[in-house]
Design a protein around this nucleic acid. Structure first.
Lengths: 376, 376
DNA sequence: GATCTCTCTGCAAACCTTTGCACTGAAGTA
DNA sequence: TACTTCAGTGCAAAGGTTTGCAGAGAGATC
């Protein structure tokens, strides 16, 4: 019942190879023939069978997208952007959810490997060495994890943490807390490193609370600790946790931002809707999705996995690009931060004023803010 | 480089067909041989090539999921549940985002048709007749749209609207407004129909405002209208709009729920985080995803598209099940609704008390709450 | 008129797997 | 012993497409 290249060939009176070429190498076929073939194809409603095509070319024109938790509002914009970008390039995308489970991640990479030209690993939970190993089975691009020898797209949460801490210090906060993220998260480590350094530089003290699950509940559960720590400002691993903390502090009768300032990370759409509206470090999620897809596809065209002729299969060396892209983040100041106890007083070694409130600029199209390209 | 059935055959000293059978029909091969083959396969890291398998069996073991807007928080739980259920049954899922664009929907169904065993159409924007027509190209299950002759999974928003209106009437509201959804949405029509009837029955008056885009902005933009209409209670098409309305009313200095009560629909996770927390009609999104996948796969096993032998292709008749499943909704009462001006007074023809506040029960596993199965 | 060049088209193999059919040999039956 | 039955295996075709190679003309050049 499905109409094949063969039907089109019969209808237009040419050989199937000519029909094939009409679609995959139009310049090789006589314009007249071409229009005839195209007309017949249109008529019959012919659509090339990608499975068959994949069988011989070795390229499926599919990519896989492995996500820790689709329900986490951080991911949908990334998925959306990645899917859109992929489709733009005539690729379709498999989306798989691992429920934050490392074993599921591995299983999915295996399962998808034969069906895709590459896989995007978003905020993976598995070990570096396993990722390394899997990358020999299928081209991988890793998002939110730095891995020598593999293409990565990272968001500069370090810079974000610095901005946040400086903002808080500028407001006159000296006692701060960091709500850490899940164990083994690259982002969490990065955040902690940068926040500690920035706090030290600003003459502030930073208490680290965690690790915590990266959810609303995780934040809520730390409200008591935050109060007990006696800090006046908190930077949370992500907005979800910050929002949970907002809830928790409210329940304890602690007013935000009057008594405690709270800063999140991610700028999920929700953070504009809390009360008070959340000050947060915006991560370019959509840009990350687009960029990751671009890198995957680029890698794929540069170093195709196999090049097949009429039959001979030529294995290709393992050379590949391992560009690492760092995307900029930006502090978005809203209503959950306010002057602290030391407001107005001169801080040691710094001008008093913090950075002026900058509104967020939309990162727009595929933005590579700080491109650190390392060829291997 | 990739290891095929052929390599396994060579390694284990049997014919490729035996290897094939060890995987696809194990009972046909001698246990001894089987373990040997499996061992070799394991050793070599063999993974069946699904594209090749699809080519001959006609089943790809993939399904497509077409979504109006992944970034709309209504969808991620549905996607997550669908993906999980599909994978449970050894299917992978393509996810595609149409940006609320009907043309994109059609294009995607076409593009995916050859690559999947069926497609889930979620809250489609295209016309009934087009859906009808596309369903001849690839098995379809439609979510949130009722379509004679096609399998659908619906959420009983009518019942939800009734509950909401009765709840509001019970609280003593008589002047209410409905914020309508986008034009052409089945859910929106259903909501309007049921809400009007329920209001009439309760002796209340219902003003319909809209149609509106199903977003926060859409709700925000109607705040002024709501105030002008002089109503004391509002039912919104979805939570996003309700939240936008909350914002808008706040900006106008109208207090919720003291002056105006607001009810949403969907119970997205956000609605627990607004202030006041949103009273809303919970829709069983995850259950819908699971059920839709089940129906698609069921249909596919009942009436496979083609049954191929060693070569003969047998076209199968167009018979198919067209079960329509209606899933129950539930009113979740939180803090955005409060007694209205007629509280305590006897309403004509009804007992004064509204339905008691029932907390939401988690729908748990594949739940078909009210299964209205119509075989065609 | 012979030779060469060039464009277009056809031929056939190959991609990897499944599956109807046929074959083998051993066990069971008469 | 001669026959059937049956489990296990091999053979080969098929699925839809791509692509290196070769051939057929047409036109150009000498």
């Amino acid at each position: 019942m499905p109409v094949t290249i063969r039907d089109v060939a019969r209808a237009s009176g040419v050989h199937i190879s000519t029909v094939s070429r009409t679609f995959s190498a139009p310049h090789l076929v006589n314009p007249e023939t071409r229009v005839r073939v195209l007309a017949c194809a249109e008529d019959l409603g012919y659509r090339p069978n990608r499975a068959a095509r994949a069988l011989i070319t070795g390229r499926t024109h599919n990519i896989g997208l492995i996500i820790a938790d689709i329900a986490n509002p951080f991911f949908p914009p990334l998925i959306k952007a990645a899917e859109s970008q992929a489709r733009h390039r005539d690729y379709h995308v498999f989306v798989a959810d691992t429920n934050e489970d490392a074993a599921a991640e591995e299983e999915l990479v295996h399962a998808l490997a034969k069906q895709v030209d590459g896989v995007l690993l978003c905020s993976p939970r598995m070990s570096n060495s396993l990722i390394e190993q899997l990358s020999r089975e299928v081209p991988l691009v890793v998002v939110n994890r730095q891995l020598a020898g593999l293409p990565c797209v990272l968001m500069d949460v370090g810079q974000g943490a610095r901005s946040a801490i400086e903002h808080l210090a500028g407001l006159g906060h000296r006692e701060m807390a960091l709500l850490g993220g899940p164990r083994g998260s690259w982002t969490s480590r990065e955040l902690r490193r940068a926040a500690s350094a920035a706090a030290r530089a600003a003459g502030a003290e930073l208490t680290v609370l965690g690790p915590n699950p990266p959810t609303e509940t995780g934040g809520l559960a730390q409200a008591e600790q935050v109060r007990r720590a006696g800090v006046t400002a908190v930077l949370a691993y992500n907005d979800l946790m910050a929002i949970g903390l907002l809830e928790g502090l409210d329940a304890l009768g602690v007013r935000v931002p009057q008594e405690v300032s709270v800063v999140g990370v991610d700028d999920i759409s929700l953070s504009r809707l809390t009360r008070p509206k959340l000050t947060t470090v915006a991560t370019p999620t959509a840009a990350a999705g687009r960029t990751a897809v671009d890198m995957l596809l680029q890698q794929d065209t540069d170093f195709p996995r196999t090049a097949r002729g009429g039959g001979a299969t030529v294995a290709v060396g393992v050379r590949r690009t391992t560009a690492q892209v760092m995307l900029q983040t930006e502090l978005v100041i809203r209503d959950s931060t306010a002057p602290g106890p030391y407001a107005g007083r001169e801080r040691p070694g710094t001008a008093a004023a913090g950075p002026g409130p900058h509104r967020r600029a939309d990162p727009g199209n595929p933005v590579v803010a700080a491109g650190d390209v390392v060829a291997s």
